[in-house]
């Protein structure tokens, strides 16, 4: 799956579940979801569940850190990395 496709699906999920104001509709890819108040402890779990089901990856507890999940860019890189690792193992 391309990074563009991953980003598109993540943006759609965040848009449908966490964005309630038009001001946040065109969220910068590098913007912190935590600092913007878009995601809280419940939202993080919702996001993790989405990533596991939609991208067929396993998110380890230790991977639930801001480095991986705090912005759209970070999430895209994380998912792409997990999928890349999975395909390397499969090959």
């Amino acid at each position: 799956m391309s990074n563009t496709e991953i980003e598109s699906r993540i943006r759609r999920f965040i848009d449908e579940n966490f964005i309630f104001s038009e001001d946040d509709a065109n969220l910068d890819g590098a913007a912190s979801l935590l600092d913007a108040g878009l995601v809280d402890s419940t939202g993080i779990l919702e996001l993790v569940t989405f990533l596991e089901s939609d991208f067929a990856i396993q998110v380890a507890d230790a991977e639930i850190i801001p480095d991986n999940l705090d912005s759209i860019d970070a999430i895209v890189a994380y998912v792409a990395g997990k999928q890349g690792a999975a395909s390397s193992v499969a090959a």
């Binding site: 935590l34 995601v39 402890s41 993080i44 507890d61 639930i64 801001p66």
Partner: peptide, 16 residues
């Protein structure tokens, strides 16, 4: 410490 991931991770670790 402003980190909403802590509570989520603790609960998830316990439930797993």
């Amino acid at each position: 410490v402003s980190n909403p991931l802590m509570g989520a991770r603790l609960l998830r670790s316990y439930l797993n």
